[in-house]
Design a protein around this nucleic acid. Structure first.
Lengths: 190, 190
DNA sequence: CTGATTTGCCTAAAGGGCTTAGGCAATTAC
DNA sequence: GTAATTGCCTAAGCCCTTTAGGCAAATCAG
């Protein structure tokens, strides 16, 4: 019988794609086995269990997102960098909703640790790099990291959940104005 | 055999408490049946299915939170009202993490609709009431509603996930400073 | 290239959650 | 007190997870 050529990495990758199609919560060891035309038990040679699979998907997504964010921020500063960074997150969430959800699957930290945590650190560093254009002192800079993270993540989460779709203006119109407001705020933060 | 005295409302209430203990995702028809010392199938006379149960819990939580928010905002305006409102959300999430998570279980809208949606509208109205202290024109007021919602919800989500627990200052220290920054921003929003 | 070892996928089986169907007993209504 | 209703029960089927043990394909030694 021909082998399917599975591996931890291929499962994580296929799982990420599946997450975008059916939602991260619906990604299951069984569904992935069906996708590869393979018995469910066969996947357990490559992932420890369901949590491990989800953690791997989360790590793939968080790393991919960090790569895109790094590219977007490179060579920009201030307001320009802020918009570029914010847009990367929002665009990623809109094109890859399952993967975006996966990035927040924080159980990943306790299961895989290492790579997931490393990707998380890259994100923090990128936000701090953008904030260097606003010269803030500690602890204000940390407050600002948290403000940006909260607002961006919060907006994306609510938009993905459809919270903005039943009222005017469109979610896409409010977005740049809100990022601009944050830029103004950062510029004048004591 | 003595009856347990179940009802949709009691299940929703017990489910909410269970959510705070074990996490909203772990609230299951089976777990709830165990809690009442009753056979699993018995719950199906009171809730349509698992989604219905979760939607009821979400509605209980969203309504309870709206009540608390309304009380907190009553008689306050401007910065004062903003802090009071924001604190209600954060405190609720910290004391009732399972219930807070439940409030964002938006599948609830499509299952139960009515009450859940009504509670959601109350939240929007409260935020708009607070914003009346900052006189903003449309569409800026809507942008501001979304900014506040995003930042507050985002911060709470990240804090609950432990994202702020491995760095200084504490999540409790950044919070009032971030809300103050939002107050300043709203005061000067074009 | 052949034989031994490793590795990949398989079958089998057990446990748990969800859900429906149908029955008996406790409660409520008359 | 009897009849109608309602509440909880047993039984059974389906899906997902996970472990154990086996056979065959790939890989490695000589």
């Amino acid at each position: 019988m021909a082998r399917a050529g599975l591996s931890g990495a291929r499962l994580a990758q296929a799982g990420a794609e599946l997450a975008d199609e059916v939602g991260f919560e619906q990604v299951t060891v069984s569904a992935l086995a069906r996708h590869f035309g393979v018995q469910v038990a066969s996947l357990y040679s490559h992932v420890r269990n369901s949590d491990d699979l989800k953690a791997r998907i989360a790590t793939v997504a968080l790393t991919e997102l960090a790569d895109q964010a790094a590219t977007a921020v490179a060579g920009r500063a201030g307001r320009d960098a802020l918009h570029a960074l914010a847009d990367v997150y929002r665009d990623y969430a809109r094109t890859h909703p399952g993967r975006y959800t996966a990035t927040r699957h924080t159980a990943a930290a306790s299961v895989l640790g290492e790579q997931y945590v490393a990707a998380g650190r890259r994100h923090s560093e990128l936000v701090r790099a953008v904030l260097r254009g606003y010269d803030l002192d500690e602890p204000t800079e940390t407050d600002a990291v948290r403000l940006l993270g909260s607002t961006i993540h919060g907006y994306i989460t609510l938009e993905l959940a459809g919270s903005f779709s039943h009222s005017e203006p469109s979610a896409g119109d409010s977005w740049p104005r809100i990022i601009d407001a944050l830029d103004t705020l950062l510029r004048s933060w004591s």
